[in-house]
Every structure is written in C-alpha cells, then in structure tokens.
Design a protein around this nucleic acid. Structure first.
Ligand SMILES: [Mn+2]
Ligand SMILES: [Mn+2]
Ligand SMILES: [Mn+2]
Ligand SMILES: [Mn+2]
Lengths: 220, 220
DNA sequence: ATATATTTTTAGATAAGTCTAAATTTTTTA
DNA sequence: TAAAAAATTTAGACTTATCTAAAAATATAT
C-alpha cells in the first residue's frame, strides 16, 4: 500500500522534530507544524501506527519506526534533489524553491529519483546546505556550528541555514551572505548580541542575533 | 480557488474526447476514460459546471467552457513539457514517461512551467509527436495522415502515434520505427490490410493494420 | 406508437482528512 | 497531595471523491 501526501508530510515532520536522538514528538508540536488541530493529529497518528510507521502510545508522544524512518528519508531525499534541480537547472532562487519541492517530493517512482540524482551529478547538499540522503537512505548530518558560538576574530565558512523562510533567505541575499562565503566575526555587542561581520574579506555589516542564530558555519 | 487533481484530469479527458470540433462528451464515455462509474461522473460534472468549467445540461452531455478549455490546455502543456524533460534530460524511454507525467502535470506554479519550457528550449512537440501548447494556450494540432491512408509507393515521415500504450511504443522500438523515420509503403495485403514498409531506406518489415492505424505520418 | 433497452441521474453509503466541543489523562503548582 | 492547568483523546460532524442500487429520462425496435 502507498502512503498519501498527508502521511508522507507527517512522517517528514516527525523526523524533523524528533531530531538526531529520535526523541518523542508531541501531538501539539505536530499540530503546530502541520497547521492542523491536535484532534486531527491524533487521528492521523492512529493511522500511521496502524500501518507500522510510528511507535505510538496514547498520551506518550510518537517516534518513527525503522520503516517510517525509511519513508521519511526517501521523501527528504526527493525534496532536496528537486530543490537542487530547481536552482541549478531552472534558475530559481534558493528562496523560491521550498513550496514547489514540497509538492514534487510526493511524486512516486524510484527510477525517477535515481535518474534525477544522476542528472544532477549526485549532489551531496541542497541549495540551503542541507545534506541529501543517498539512495540507500544514509543521511549524515554534518555537525556545523551556529554563528552565535563563533568568537571574535574567527573566520568561518557559511554552510547552511536553520530558517528556510523566503524572507530570511532574501535578507541574506541582500547582505551578500551566500553558501560558501567566508565570514569573519569582527565584533559582538554585549547588549543585544548583534555582531559586525566581514564577508569574503570585503564589506563589513551588522547582523542581528536573530540572523546569527540561523546561520550554520564551519570552522576551518 | 484551485482545481484538484481529479478536476484537472476530468477537464483534460473532456478536452481529448470532445475532439477538434468540441462535440458533446457523454457521461458513460467519461466513466470509461476515468475508470469510475457513471454516477461518480455525474457528481463531478455538477461540480465542474458549478465552477463554470463546463457547459452541462442534464442528459445532454458536456463541453468545456472557454475557462475550462484554458485549464485543460495548461495541464496538457505541463504534461507534454514534463515528458520532454523525462526523455531528453533524464534519459527515459518514450514508453516510460506517461504515468510519471500524469502526476507532474498537476504540480501548480506558472513560473515553474515557464522556466521548464525555457530550460528545454521551447520544444514544439513531445516525445510522442504531440504538439505542446504555447504559454498563451495556443494549441495547433498539425494535420497528419494515418498510415492506413498512405498508398503503395509513397514515402512518408513518421510524426506521431495515436496509441500511447507502453506495449505499442516498445513494439515500435523493436521495429526501428521512431519519430522522424522515413517510411516507404512497399506493399499492402488486400486480405488483412497488413503492409510491407521500408524504414529509412533500410530494412523492410511487415506491420499489421493494428500498427498502421496508430501511426501518424506526413507526406513530403 | 408503444414496449424495451440504454443512458443518465438520484438516493443513500463509505473512507480520508479535517474541524469544534467535550471528556479524559498527564503535568504543574500551591 | 489535592487542585488547577495543560495536553491529549474521543465524539460527532463536514467535505471530497468514490461506490451500489434504484429511479427517471432518452433512444431504439417492433
Ligand atoms: Mn510535502
Ligand atoms: Mn532545502
Ligand atoms: Mn493526471
Ligand atoms: Mn505524450
């Protein structure tokens, strides 16, 4: 039996909310993320448990089963590959592709994904710096640092974002902060944790804590 | 308001069944084509009429309105562009792409279609020789000849197929009959209308009436 | 022209995914 | 540890797209 769009979206969200350690996800958290009501989530959880995709005990929160994890990762793989296609081949901006990929990720067909992957040259990361699971379902999250943890004087590489909202990505575009940019922290203001950073050895700019909190970087 | 997958499929099928002259389509014909029951079709027709997408009077069959025609043609445009993508860029065979395109055609986003069209170089025909409507919704059906109407001695160009079934397309592959091939009719058997044809000035082969009936060609 | 056959529509159900309101369970606080 | 608050589940309802069975309309045949 096939999984519906809705079921796939739930699995993907459970995967994302339960994080690296696979901790329990609450009904309310899912209601929030899926923009539905808690009662609707409960109904869906019963169904997913029925299908063996999640571990679910009433009032105890949920975790993915191995089978559910597999489905979630395949959906994530498709989402990220399509995003690469949209940006690299069709010329979309990284701020424009999320919603379209949200639909494309549900197109069934193993062969399609594999051919797309080959066509794109087996990319390892999507346009937002997120890792793309391989065909076997191996997904290794690189351990990046959040910019707020970087000290004055350090030079780091911009590797990804935590917030994927178009408005945030457009803000980064306007600031010249793109994937691969070299960021040197020049100054951190004690009062509001805003910072002065130099981008690619060029212009220096102020960024708020809100921005720093959402930038993933790598020390070199 | 958006149209659902189901609504789009109905509109596309009505377009196809009502042909060039836009003749009325019967409930039963739609039930057949959509693999549903007549009662379900009636329900959907009421809804489509409600939305102003079809002209519908009880017991009288249906036609697309201008608005419905526009939607149908956009879906057809997307279907055929995605088929070009799958064959030209991903390396699928022409016999493998229909079902996948049947899903991709419902992905919403004007911009996506236009960028895809540009990426593909504004193709005029899909892998089966069917014309691709332009961005404004202009769809001109070229008037091809069916191979059964070609006389002995004539040399024609293979331009398209009427049957899109994978089994038929695979049969053509095995026979070396591809789009653009030159077909010379050498002999027609009176008894069963089977024919001997020479492909690209090379091998001669026998084809049944069943095959001839589904080949669209152009006189030169 | 009337009876018969075919086509189409209506009536009443079902499953998926959602909702609100009420009941229940768990957690927190005093 | 008992009361209050928060989280979760249940009950009952709605919408979409489908179904079967029965009724109504149209077409065909004697
Ligand atoms: Mn999605
Ligand atoms: Mn992404
Ligand atoms: Mn379709
Ligand atoms: Mn086609």
């Amino acid at each position: 039996m096939q999984n519906s769009f809705t079921e796939e979206n739930y699995l993907k969200i459970i995967h994302s909310l339960s994080g690296r350690e696979g901790t329990e996800v609450s009904t309310n958290a899912l209601a929030e993320s899926t923009s539905t009501r808690a009662a609707s989530v409960t109904d869906m959880l019963r169904k997913l448990a029925e299908k063996g995709l999640i571990h679910y005990k009433k009032y105890q929160g949920v975790r993915l089963t191995d089978s559910g994890e597999k489905v979630a990762i395949q959906v994530i793989r498709k989402h990220r590959l399509w995003e690469v296609f949209l940006v690299e081949k069709l010329g979309f901006g990284w701020d424009e592709v999320h919603d379209i990929a949200e639909e494309l990720e549900h197109i069934p067909s193993e062969i399609l994904v594999e051919k797309l992957d080959r066509f794109l040259g087996h990319p390892k990361f999507d346009p937002h710096g997120d890792p793309i699971p391989d065909a076997k379902g191996n997904l290794t999250e690189p351990d990046y640092t959040i910019l707020t943890d970087v000290h004055i004087g350090e030079k780091v590489l911009m590797m990804g974002v935590l917030d994927h909202a178009p408005s945030f990505l457009q803000h980064l575009d306007r600031s010249g902060i793109t994937l691969g940019a070299v960021i040197e922290v020049k100054e951190i203001n004690e009062y509001d944790k805003s910072a002065s950073v130099q981008i690619n050895g060029g212009p220096t700019l102020f960024i708020s804590l809100e921005v720093s909190k959402n930038l993933l970087v790598q020390r070199r």
